[in-house]
Simulated assay, not measured.
Amino acid sequence: MVKSTFVPTEALLFFNRADAATIDAFAAQIIPSEEGSPGAREAGVVYYIDRALAGFMRDLQPLYRRGLEAISDLAVSVFGKEFSMLYDFEQRSLVAGLDARSQSQPEDFAGQFYRVVREHTVQGFFGDPAYGGNRDVVGWKLVGFPGAQWGYSREQMQPGVDARSIPILTIGDLYSRIGANRT
């Protein structure tokens, strides 16, 4: 199936729509969606990366510009169209090739860019939603992480406790509790 055109659900701070579509599709190949298991796309990883590049990772903007160009050039040279418009199997093939290049040719720029995007995809999937990714705490639910907590009870600290029984809290939840308790 051809990827649909990316439609932003939030304002983009660094990426234009085409760049966001490429990163969204690229991240979706790194952490794909499966039946009953949301992936990078559902977690909003593209928004985490976008916000990070507009803020604390702004020094990586030139790397992303060059990397997006390299991914575009590769997709067009191999398949004749932009990465975000490729079929899933074509995207998967290119990403697998970049993964292999990143391991066998550490000096290869496209392979290096793949490693950077992979790292940022993981950060966006498992980080606190306050940073733009991990929508609906899908990453935390996947691994049974209870999120930001003020602390844990003695019972919760015992070996073998199922952390999925602890209500998931985000940084936003903790801040709202502070504000709600002020008089």
Rank of each mutant, 00 (worst) to 15 (best):
F79A: 12
F79S: 11
R101L: 13
V45R: 04
M157W: 00
L94Y: 03
A52M: 15
L68R: 02
Q156S: 05
H120A: 09
A52C: 08
Y131C: 07
I71H: 03
S176C: 04
G44N: 04
V2C: 00
I49E: 05
A96I: 06
R65S: 15
Y48I: 08
G147E: 03
F109P: 08
L174M: 13
V2D: 10
Q156L: 09
D108M: 01
Y48C: 06
S77C: 06
D50H: 05
P129Y: 02
R164M: 09
R115Y: 00
T9W: 04
N134I: 09
E35D: 13
R115F: 03
V46N: 09
E155I: 10
Y175P: 00
M157S: 13
G124Q: 08
S37F: 11
D19I: 00
D88P: 10
I166S: 06
E35Q: 15
F126K: 00
A163H: 02
K81Y: 01
F6T: 03
V7K: 15
W140V: 07
Q105W: 00
E82A: 14
P167I: 12
P106I: 09
I49K: 07
K3W: 03
I71D: 07
Q29H: 00
A54E: 05
V2W: 02
N134V: 15
V137S: 04
Q123S: 07
R66H: 14
Q105C: 01
L53Q: 07
R65I: 13
A43I: 01
F83V: 06
A18F: 02
V117Y: 01
P8C: 04
G67F: 04
A110C: 05
A20L: 08
D173L: 06
I30R: 01
K3L: 13
E155V: 11
F145D: 11
R164N: 08
T183K: 12
E119H: 05
V7G: 03
R164T: 15
E107L: 08
M1T: 10
P38M: 13
S72T: 15
G111W: 01
D59W: 04
R177S: 05
V137K: 08
P32W: 01
G172H: 00
Y47V: 12
E82I: 03
A21H: 08
A70P: 11
